[in-house]
Design a protein around this nucleic acid. Sequence first.
DNA 1: ACAAAAGTGTTGTTACTACACCCATGG
DNA 2: CCATGGGTGTAGTAACAACACTTTTGT
Lengths: 231, 231
Amino acid sequence: MAEFTTQPPLPAHVALAVVFQVRAGVLDVLLWERARDPFRGMWSLPGGTLAPEETLETSILRHLATKVDVREVAHLEQLGTWSEPPRHPERWELATAYLGLVPLGLDPSVPPDTRWHPVEDLPATAFDHGSIVLAGRERLRGKLSYSNIGFALAPDGFTLAELRDVYEAALGYEVSATNLKRVLLRRGAIEPVGKTKAHGPAGGRPAEVYRFCSRRFEVTDPFAVLRPPTP
Amino acid sequence: MAEFTTQPPLPAHVALAVVFQVRAGVLDVLLWERARDPFRGMWSLPGGTLAPEETLETSILRHLATKVDVREVAHLEQLGTWSEPPRHPERWELATAYLGLVPLGLDPSVPPDTRWHPVEDLPATAFDHGSIVLAGRERLRGKLSYSNIGFALAPDGFTLAELRDVYEAALGYEVSATNLKRVLLRRGAIEPVGKTKAHGPAGGRPAEVYRFCSRRFEVTDPFAVLRPPTP
DNA sequence: ACAAAAGTGTTGTTACTACACCCATGG
DNA sequence: CCATGGGTGTAGTAACAACACTTTTGT
């Protein structure tokens, strides 16, 4: 809270986005190939500097608008602020990262210098962006367990097999469609939409179509333990 | 990632700390009374501007050192970054807030212009600091349920009645010492230390003394639901 | 003996996992 | 009629809440 007699130096501040989408059954992150130094040719998170009169959230939405259609980002939340001085080799720069989720099936047109990369197999990344991506995945994994955040990775209507594939890609382990359905139904997170979806080429029973009841973030399992007394 | 031809304006950046301690059975937050405008006479979070070569975490620790003995802050974690332009009436300033926890029983000497205030009964707060305090309490409440974070609010050795009081103050509802003990024992979060503590003035069975097995933050209940397959 | 405080035992419940089994469709 | 994929039924279980009961102390 000190006031200054001389003007202190100020750090630059950028907003970054860790945008995830399940593509081809794999959790991918959107990365941008740097055209100039530092880290020329390496891959970095999309984003850019904060402008006056902007919040960090509007700033990252503005920067994303040039990479992805913003309407396709179904969920956006702040991940954290990275401030280690050596994170940028040339200047003093803080970065506030956001986690963004794009539903399965959409294929936003992205500029030629951006590409989706599997989180499990990241290329060489610029700055500390590799660890920021992993922090985003941890946040996503946690929230998949106790919230309805799956809505932001799933398409509008989906079969339970499709939803299971989304959860498996994000969580990195096998999920049972049978039990996933019961967990999400009991919590009132998903509901049947009343239609069925055509079977695969080799036949099979048509699958029921479900949807998330709400497409806004909600905590569905608020007190895992230590819940308040019942009456 | 735009590079600039003209130098853009930069926001100031402060680190703030939401420091909680259970005092007299109530969750308190450390606030500082502003001596000058804006918000003269109102209460604000301790903190200050970021200096070059500092991380946000070392910065807030440095600022706290003048208010609280840093060794008494048993846990510190980043809460988030607030960036709404109108949050400061006079200048463009971002604030990254940290959550700090001080164990029960310590009574750090604080400067005369700082004071502990019950979170349930906050005075008029400067800037957006009131909502930052409440965000800190929400973070704390969530983590009490699925981690060992209670170690940072509890003294080194404690009886289960004392620990229950700490949890009740932080959570805001009644907690059963009986069940709290079994939950934390089963998870391996606490252990008996082998001694007993003297009873109150009206007699009563002496209580066993427990301690947290680890005094570093650990997630003790990682997958509340959707846990990976057992084998 | 009795009050006070702490600890234990026991029952019931919920929300899961795991797995066997049943249903609908195409070839 | 069988392969394929989706759905249902059910048993087992871990982790908890609630509450009655017991133990250890002081007065």
